[in-house]
Amino acid sequence: MPSLAQQKYEREYTIKPSAVPEKASKFIRDVFKGAKIHWYGEESLKQKTIEAKFKVAGKRYSIEFDPSGEVQDVEIRSSFNAIPSETRAVLTKRLNREFDKFKVVKTQIQWKADKSILQQALVAETAPKSVQVRYELILKASKKRITNYYEVLCEKSGEVVSIHEIIQRNTDNLIY
């Protein structure tokens, strides 16, 4: 089976709230009044996005926008055990084929839909059928006795969409 793993590299930086597109600010304001938002710009090899990160009522949100301020997706921090058991079973089976062993270190639920539907879903704290639900996992996984961190995106069914190896930053200055 061909490996889906690709390398993932991102550059991110803080953005002042005043530099955020109005459409993006309004999207957040309309749903989360008074929330303290941290805004980041992210550049990958393929695209440029704006990300809002915040915590409301114990839930960690990460909402991604395109440079014009159009919402792309919503990610909510969760746990692997919170994923439906059928999804987990399909995904675990697939990951066991991909890796010698793995450990899930971070789980996020990803919602994709039109702006108004996403806003309604965020208010209701549940995704209606019109929302595309996916799961994004960060794994610490071994392949051919080499351990790395990977970002895995899977469908609601558990079918894997992509696996990216996360490039580790150089930390030699902290080791020696």
Binding site: R11, E12, T14, Y40, R169
Partner: peptide, 17 residues
């Protein structure tokens, strides 16, 4: 170690250690 701009230390960025 912490980036002075954003959450991670990217190339051409300053940090504090």
């Amino acid at each position: 170690e912490k980036a002075l701009n954003g959450r991670q230390i990217d190339p051409k960025e300053m940090y504090v250690k």
